[in-house]
Amino acid sequence: MIVLSILAFIFCIIQISILRSIAILQVIPDIVLIIVIYVALFHGKIAMWFGFFTGFFIDLYSSKLGYSALINTVIGYGIGNFASQFSREVPVLWVIMLFGGSLFQKMVLFAVQKELSLFFFGRYVILGSLYTTVVGVIIFFILRKIEQGKK
């Protein structure tokens, strides 16, 4: 859990600093959300703490304090509660959880935006969720290999 905490902190730093350079059509993957969903899937409801602190960290560098913290906490708690009923090693479940979690986060953030447009929705919500899902699956495989190797 300590390793995952450090990893979450590193992901937060990367998210706010250098991730902009790998943007596709100005859309970047949310690797902080990926680590929250990973913890939720494989470690349960404790992910709400990850969600709160990582979300709070991201909020410090955004114009909307508290929103990411709230959303990430809800996602961590919700997926942690939901995933306990399923087999967690199925990649399809990862994809569903990643895409669902990302879509929820971006929908909420889209809803609180002052400028609502279909272009913005398509680009930042749909494309952003897809991008996060693809990158998330890769990170999930890597983290699972690391965790299984430790065991």
Binding site: K45, M48, W49, F52, G55, F56, D59, K64, L65, G66, Y67, A69, L70, T73, V74, Y77
Partner: peptide
């Protein structure tokens, strides 16, 4: 704790 965290987040949104 979840409810407390949600409450803190709402407070943060207002405070921000």
């Amino acid at each position: 704790w979840f409810i407390i965290l949600i409450f803190i987040c709402i407070v943060l949104i207002g405070f921000g």
